[in-house]
């Protein structure tokens, strides 16, 4: 299992979303098959809504947790 960390602290939407989507487009197939996952580190509160919503529509699972004053959004395939 490969974890791709994207640290986009300091960025705000829509950049956060676009940066995450860019990675999802790239390794989406691996995430779907469960071989990889993406962990986004962001301090943009709005991103915690837009990123999971979009990822879910694309068929990914997500969870969000707070981590050191930021948010950690995990995007993964199979539960």
């Amino acid at each position: 299992m490969q974890t791709l960390d994207i640290d986009i602290r300091g960025q705000i939407c829509p950049s956060c979303l676009l940066l995450t989507l860019k990675e999802l487009n790239r390794i989406g197939a691996d995430i779907r098959s469960g071989e990889a996952e993406i962990v986004v580190l962001t301090d943009d509160r709005q991103a915690t809504a837009t990123i999971p919503a979009t990822a879910n529509r694309m068929g990914f699972h997500t969870d969000v947790e707070r981590q050191d004053g930021a948010y950690r959004i995990r995007i993964f395939g199979r539960t």
């Binding site: 676009l18 989507l21 860019k22 487009n25 989406g28 529509r57 694309m58 068929g59």
Partner: peptide, 15 residues
Amino acid sequence: PIGIVAEAFEQVITH
């Protein structure tokens, strides 16, 4: 961004 969104949409539609 258009490319990103389009590609993302492709995934949305597939899903």
